[in-house]
Design a protein around this nucleic acid. Structure first.
Length: 749
DNA sequence: CGTGGCCGGCTTTTT
DNA sequence: GCCGGCCACG
């Protein structure tokens, strides 16, 4: 970012604000982080103790960055007293410190990630013998909504089963959106039938979720586990129940700063309200135009209604954009101007000059798209920019593979943000499950996870018998497994399975006792259970097997790096495993000079000189999930607070997401789409994204890209004779010329 | 109880 | 095109 030497008057006002609530509306690229860090520094300068300041962010990365930047202002000695963490981490700290008030057995509790929670729900569904296959994530979404709204299970049941008239089925809103071909209405009757089916499904999901809810809560309690929502909600419950406990925390943190406030959910609002309720020194920073997490419960009303939640709040708007060229901002404004959502009125004032025009590329298919991106990135690098200045953004992680391959072909280094976290992949969790079990034998989830993987005669029947015995004798499942011979009528194979599992776990524990490095233990474990062979056998293709084994090596690498850094202590390792789902200490190499590949969501808060936003087609952006209502969608709230069909809301969110993507660019923006794309195997013609069509043609240069640019051709360009070619064009395969010149206007709209 | 084959369904974003 | 779930068989 081009940093002006001095703060502008609004920035100054936000930094200097002293006591009482403050809302900073920080448009994209308006120097938000600078304001927040300066504000912290200023508070300290005024004599506030660093340890009474609490800054909350959404990601560990953002927290680390904020901490770093404050450190550079106030120095390490003071900065180390400062609390900067994510909501979830903060909640975990509170819960960890209050285990007695929470009435937990011992002080340890498990943290459940989505997969763990899904496993619990699946088990409950099996238990109550519902006849059909429910989509577990759809149920989880409803459970999460209920939790965050602090709905008690019996209240929900009453509402579901009671006389309260069911809402009338929601009408699809005709004409409120441009009728993209995806939502083709093929016959009223069919459309209406579908609509009715969806509604019936929605009701069925609501009902099944209300039945699962109390059982889910009970299961977590039994397992002494908290899910992600609990890390926030349980803190709020505790504080409501125990004003004395709340008061301690209020005394501890006298100044709160919340970043990305537009992404807070109801429970997080409550947490902020309670913690800041006494002193009201609550500073929140955010941008309602960048609210892109409603799907996971974020409620944009939190930022829209801040002034009513915190009466007398001062509001500061940061409207100068120091990041992007005017050309980029023109596009961003065009995207935003199509929005019908309720917003804080504010403008974006460009401070930089016009800059390069935005490039729109229409590729024949995804390979051509990827190859264009690869060739263009190579060009940019050859012209002297660094890979780290470049990012490729996409809507869905599925899109990353083509790009990754295209860049790999050209030997351009990449770094992927997000993707299915490898901590969540099955093979990785299996390995971690064994380690967890060796370290905490009573970790029942870990035990159940690995008990029959690989198969050792302990199927559903055997496990049920063991579990029943455990329940009957009030013993842990592990203690029963380790004394399996006392269980009646257990199949001989199952008994032998228990013995071999116990041998394996005890051998592993012995290694920990001997102080072997964690990576070595994990590797030995992987060998002992034949993980590699099992992956090989269980994969449909060699490719898939290689990928999955690669994930295992990835986690081994993480362990290795920890060991190398001397964090090899057993207790620390156990804690690392416990927190692994919070994604701290992911061990990723920082500050490397690589091209960033990430989803649009993952790009929030980042900026790059050159940004490629790819796959701008209906169905991908906006994503088809948001175009068509589905039974599995959990209801959302409008800014006004009524329930609404998810569709129209989500489209607005998609628009904001696109806005976020566009505003990541500092110097030059590329928007690409493909004319054909294989969707589930079949090639299909694609229509341009409505957002693309809304951009006034004069703001962009559009051109077509016919054939893939082979990397060999690109390498030739790099040669001495290729300078002209690098500037004027790239040779396509098959001797065709794929025109790169700026003057190839082909507006086909 | 385990395995292999078949079918079906589905595909967003993440602390 | 891929994964996962289900069923039938050994």
């Amino acid at each position: 970012m081009v940093v002006p030497p001095q703060l502008n008057p609004s920035q100054q006002a936000a930094v200097e604000h002293d006591l009482g609530p403050l809302l900073v509306l920080a448009g994209a690229g308006s120097g938000k982080t600078r304001v927040v860090t300066q504000r912290v520094a200023r508070l300290i300068e005024r004599g506030v103790h660093a340890r009474s300041i609490m800054a909350v962010t959404f990601t560990n990365k953002a927290a680390a960055e904020m901490h770093d930047r404050v450190k550079s202002l106030v120095g390490q000695k003071i900065a180390k007293d400062l609390s900067v963490s994510t909501f979830h981490r903060f909640g975990l700290n509170v819960l960890g410190a209050e285990t007695r008030a929470l009435g937990l057995r011992g002080s340890a509790f498990a943290i459940f990630d989505q997969a763990d929670a899904a496993g619990v729900v699946r088990e409950i569904l099996r238990d109550i013998k519902v006849g059909r296959n429910y989509d577990v994530p759809a149920i989880l979404a409803r459970l999460s909504n209920a939790k965050n709204a602090f709905v008690e299970p019996d209240a929900w049941q009453r509402a579901e089963l009671g006389e309260a008239p069911k809402k009338a089925p929601q009408r699809a809103r005709e004409g409120s959106e441009p009728p993209g071909p995806i939502v083709a209405k093929s016959g009223d009757a069919r459309a209406r039938r579908r609509e009715r089916e969806v509604q019936e499904n929605v009701d069925a999901y609501d009902e099944i979720a209300s039945i699962v809810y109390p059982r889910y809560l009970a299961a977590l309690r039994t397992l002494q586990a908290f899910d992600f929502d609990d890390l926030i909600c349980e803190v709020v419950r505790l504080w409501r129940r125990r004003p004395d406990v709340l008061e301690r925390w209020q005394m501890r943190y006298r100044y709160l700063i919340v970043d990305e406030y537009q992404d807070t959910n109801h429970a997080q609002l409550e947490l902020v309200r309670l913690l800041g309720g006494a002193h009201r020194n609550v500073c929140v920073v955010g941008d309602d135009d960048q609210s892109i997490y409603a799907w996971r419960g974020a409620d944009v009303r939190n930022i829209l209604d801040f002034e009513s939640h915190f009466a007398g709040a001062k509001v500061v708007k940061l409207e100068h954009n120091y990041r992007s060229t005017k050309a980029v901002l023109d596009v961003a404004n065009a995207v935003l101007s199509g929005s019908g959502a309720r917003r804080h009125p504010k403008s974006i004032i460009a401070t930089r000059d016009q800059g390069d025009k935005t490039q729109v590329i229409v590729a024949a298919d995804p390979e051509v798209e990827a190859s264009f991106v690869g060739a263009e990135i190579q060009r940019i690098i050859e012209q002297g920019s660094r890979p780290r200045d470049i990012a490729v953004l996409y809507r869905s992680n599925l899109q990353s593979a083509d790009i990754e391959a295209a860049l790999k072909e050209r030997a351009i280094p990449t770094r992927m943000i997000g993707g299915t976290q490898f901590y969540e992949r099955k093979e990785v969790k299996d390995l971690i499950g064994y380690l967890d079990l060796a370290l905490h034998p009573d970790h029942e989830i870990a035990l159940r996870r690995v008990i029959n993987y690989p198969a050792r005669g302990l199927g559903d029947v055997a496990v049920a018998k063991l579990a029943a015995h455990a329940t009957a004798h009030d013993a842990s499942l592990w203690s029963v497994v380790s004394r399996a011979h006392i269980v009646q009528d257990l199949a001989p194979a199952a008994l032998e399975g228990c013995r071999s599992l116990v041998r394996l776990i005890e051998a592993t524990r012995a290694r920990f006792d001997r102080g072997e490095p964690s990576a070595q233990i994990a590797r030995a474990l992987a060998t002992d259970i034949g993980l590699k062979e099992d992956i090989q056998a269980g994969s449909t293709s060699n490719n898939a097997a290689a990928r999955r084994w690669g994930n295992v090596e990835g986690i081994l690498g993480v362990f290795q790096r920890r060991d190398d850094k001397g964090k090899g202590d057993r207790a620390q390792f156990a804690e690392f495993l416990r927190l692994i789902s919070l994604r701290e200490d992911s061990g990723e190499e920082e500050a490397t000079d690589r091209v960033t590949l990430t989803t649009m969501h993952g790009a929030k808060g980042l900026e790059f000189r050159f940004v490629f936003v790819i796959g701008l087609e209906e169905g991908l952006m906006p994503h088809s999930r948001t175009l068509e209502e589905r039974a599995t969608d959990a209801p959302q709230k409008t800014a006004e607070g009524q329930d609404e069909a998810p569709t129209s809301l989500s489209i607005e969110e998609e628009r904001r997401l696109f806005y976020v993507a566009v505003t990541r660019a500092r110097d030059r923006l590329y928007l690409t789409r493909a004319k054909h794309r294989g969707m589930r195997g079949k090639m299909a013609a694609r229509t341009p994204s409505r957002f693309l069509l809304e951009i006034p043609p004069e703001l962009v240069d559009e051109r077509e890209e016919q054939a893939a640019v082979a990397p060999e051709a690109a390498k030739t360009m790099a040669g001495a004779a290729g300078v002209l070619a690098a500037i004027f064009g790239a040779a396509g395969v098959d001797g065709e010329i794929a025109p790169i010149p700026r003057s190839f206007p082909q507006r086909r709209r």
